[in-house]
Structures are given as structure tokens and as C-alpha cells.
Design a protein around this nucleic acid. Structure first.
Lengths: 242, 242
DNA sequence: AAGGTAAAGATTGTTCAACAATCCTGCAAT
DNA sequence: ATTGCAGGATTGTTGAACAATCTTTACCTT
């Protein structure tokens, strides 16, 4: 077995990261919707950890892009704008596309994990479980990225997908968005297994284009009164239209 | 003026990140060679900050990949292996290559920053200042990445280049490695300015291939037993005699 | 003398408490 | 309606304390 993986999982030190894991899960579950402020005191008591440990977890998640840290104001669940969606998909096209083209030299077992993700999505779709379809879809794309056999590339995609979950959370009824793509996933896998990475690349890019477009169409309208994320959008400081 | 940028600069919070900035600079300067253990107590006294704040900085740098955190043992300046070099360059080929191909839609001023980096490298080479050549070369590649107009892509490259500095630190007389590439930089810029991104892409990939090969050739042999660079540098800087 | 073992010391992991700095809220005054 | 100003609430940072773990030293056994 690959002991290095297990060791990496064990090594990663104590409470701080574990607290970050819990918070990450809760955020991607939608318990803390984008824009929510995460109170130190409330979370400290709820999780039963010290303030220092909690702040360590905050820093980690802020560095991952799931939280924004505003000085003397606290941390907030990040709120992404339409522009972020475009950026995320542009980056995904580059990275996932390259990973697919490099599938010929993929590490052993990597392609099987793609297949497993496809089958998981199909099974979930058969059960009508949209949430599971979504997570399986995420796993599919992570597996696609892993085909490159490049840890840094995989880690980057992991972060991009985590951010993308924030987008889904901001869109009501975003679960249905994953459903139509199960067939695309299957086709991409089939082409990869058949040794036709160029074709798989074409289908993947078409998939990403379509997914981005639908996501942008379903994007919530302008958040007039609220703060549109720190530093991303135009300031729109104090102007509150009646 | 673009107030959002200034605000982002002001926002970035207090001591923790500033301490991380200082440490990052010292590490990339070579004050702390790869493999060095960074003692909490010594650094706390040297920097005049609290242990908690220092640990926050450690976490940030560990997340950036400059430090490795071993539980109950402390943090160490990361030591990269030949495999990391291959991975870094494979990733750079993907990302920087895509950025060059997307140069047609680059944000205003981005191409000029490429030119500035080229001129900076040429000027430094004329003065025979190898260190400045190295930093200008880094700035060149960051500017290349910025052509894509994608903040996440730029941030990823920033991290890759920071890791790459660790490699240079581990190689004695690595400064000379940058020198031959000043001409390549100029040529890439010229092709970009002439509106021939495909040609620029070709030259960039050839550059990355050559740089990787030379770096691997100059790579130190197997670190068989212990850390060989532990006693070479001056790690005793922390002990401030009264 | 070689090797293992246990106590001692040093370093990190985590928590707690305190105070300073800053932000938010409500109310009074213009 | 806007400004100014207390008051309270929250975050920023520090310092100390104790537990957990690693490292070293000294000792004992063979």
C-alpha cells in the first residue's frame, strides 16, 4: 500500500487542521451560507476549542479561499461573484484540459478512479439523489486532474473545486445543474479508456463551456444592498437605493 | 485611481502576515537554508512577537509550501527533491504556456510589465549582478503568468516560483543558471509584442525544458543519511549575544 | 565496552486569562 | 438628515501555564 499517503494524513498536525476540516465540511454543506460572519466566541464554545486554535483554523481556510478575513471585523464565508465563476472555469479549462491530454502517462490506478467516480454519479442519478450526484461529479473532476500525476496540480484543482462549491451554495436549486453532465462524464472516461485523449479533451472543454454558461445564467442578480465580497467587486460603499 | 487595490493592501491584517513576510524574505534570501529547523523560542525573541503570532506565521508559510510542519518536532525550511523539480516544471509548462497563448486578451499594462522585467534582467546582466538577474527572471515569469488576467492563475504561479527559489537555494552557484536565459526572455517578449503568441509559446516551452534539464543536472546528489546543508550556512544568526 | 532503559530536560501543542485597539450601535445635539 | 459621542461588543496580541511528546543524558545490565 502507499504508506506515504497515510502518513501524510497522519502527520498533519492536531486540532487546528481538524477544526478547519470540520468547518470546511460545514461550509460546503451549506450550514454557513456565503456572507455569514463566523463569530469567534460562538464557534469557540460550539466546538469546544480554544480561541487560538479556532483562529488557526480560520487562517487556513482563509488561505484556501473559503473565508475572507477582514481586519478587526472577523471572518466571513466567501461570497463569489460572476467574475469569479468565469475565472474558475478559465483556470479549470487550462488545468483539467492539460491533465486529460497527459492521461497517457497517468499513474497506475488513476484511470480507475475516474471510472469509479463515473459509476458513482450514475448510481446516484439512478437513485435520484442530486446531492450525491454533485459530490460524485466533483470527485470525477478531481480524478481527471489526478491523471496528470502531479501533486501540485491536483492540489490546485482541489482548491478550485472547493471554491466552486461556494458558487453552488449561492445558487438556489443548483443541485439540478449536475444532472445533465453524467453522460458527459461517462463519455470522457470512455474516450480516455479507448486511448483517445484528444477527443476526450474536446468533450471536456465543451462540458466546461456549457457548465459555465448555465451557471452564469442561474447566477443570482446583483446583490444591491449587501457587501459584494471584499476587494473583488466595485466598492459600492454606502449607496443604498430605496 | 483603483481604490480597491489599495484597500486590499491595507486590509491585509496585522502581525501574523507581516511576520510571515519577513520570514519569507529571509528564507528566499538564503538566511535559513533548506532543512533548517526554525525554533519557536529563538524566533520569538529575535522578532519580538508572541509565540501565538509566530505560530500563525508558521502556518501561513507551511501552507505556502516554504515550510514543513512536523508534529511535535517543529517547522523546517522545506527541502525539495529532484522529483519536485520535475513536477514544478511540468506544472509551469501547463500554466505559463496557457498564459502566453492567452496573451491576446491580456489586461492593459500586463505586456508592459513583461517588457519591464526583460529590461530589468538585461540591465542587471550588464552590471554582472547575478542576484538581480535571478529576481528579474522571476518577475518575468510572474508577468508572463499575469498575461492571462486570472488572479487564481497568477497566485498559483506565485507559489510555484516561491518553491522554485527553494530549489535554487539548495544548489550551490545556482545564480549562474539564470544568465543564459535573458535572451530567451527578450525573444519571448518580442514575439508577444509582435502578436505571435504561438511562436512565443514554442520558445517558452523550449526555455522551460532547457532550464529544467540544467537544474536537474546541477542537483545535489542523494541526501543519503542526514541533512548535508545543516552546517554550511550560518544558522546561528538567531542567537543574539548580549 | 556495547547496548538498552529510564529519568531529566527541552520543545512543541493547547488552553486560559488579560488588556489594547477597533468596530458597531444607539442616542443626543445641531 | 447628519454629525458627534459615549457605551458595549468583537477582534488583535500578548503572556503565562500545563500537558504531550521528543531528545538527551546518565545509569544499569550483559
Amino acid at each position: 500500500m502507499r504508506l506515504t499517503d497515510d502518513r501524510a494524513r497522519l502527520d498533519r498536525g492536531g486540532y487546528g487542521e481538524r477544526v478547519a476540516d470540520v468547518l470546511r465540511e460545514r461550509i460546503t454543506e451549506g450550514v454557513f451560507p456565503p456572507g455569514t460572519r463566523l463569530s469567534e466566541d460562538a464557534l469557540r464554545e460550539a466546538l469546544g476549542v480554544s480561541r487560538n486554535t479556532l483562529r488557526e483554523a480560520f487562517r487556513l481556510l482563509a488561505h484556501e479561499g473559503l473565508l475572507t478575513h477582514e481586519f478587526n471585523r472577523g471572518v466571513f464565508v466567501r461570497k463569489l461573484a460572476a467574475d469569479d465563476v468565469r475565472e474558475l472555469y478559465a483556470f479549470r479549462r487550462i488545468i483539467e484540459g492539460a491533465a486529460v491530454l497527459a492521461a497517457a502517462g497517468a499513474p497506475p490506478g488513476a484511470l480507475e478512479r475516474v471510472r469509479e467516480a463515473v459509476e458513482g454519479a450514475e448510481s446516484a442519478a439512478g437513485d435520484g439523489d442530486q446531492v450525491r450526484v454533485g459530490t460524485a461529479n466533483m470527485r470525477f473532476h478531481q480524478a481527471i486532474a489526478d491523471l496528470a500525476g502531479n501533486r501540485r496540480l491536483s492540489e490546485t484543482v482541489r482548491r478550485l473545486l472547493a471554491e466552486l462549491r461556494l458558487v453552488f451554495l449561492a445558487i438556489p436549486a443548483a443541485q439540478n445543474l449536475h444532472q445533465p453532465y453524467v453522460r458527459d462524464n461517462r463519455q470522457i472516461y470512455r474516450l480516455l479508456a479507448a486511448g483517445e485523449p484528444a477527443e476526450a479533451h474536446r468533450v471536456l472543454l465543451a462540458y466546461l463551456d456549457g457548465a459555465e454558461r448555465r451557471l452564469l445564467d442561474a447566477f443570482p442578480p446583483h446583490p444591491a444592498g449587501t457587501t459584494p465580497a471584499a476587494g473583488s467587486g466595485p466598492p459600492a460603499l454606502l449607496v443604498t437605493p430605496p
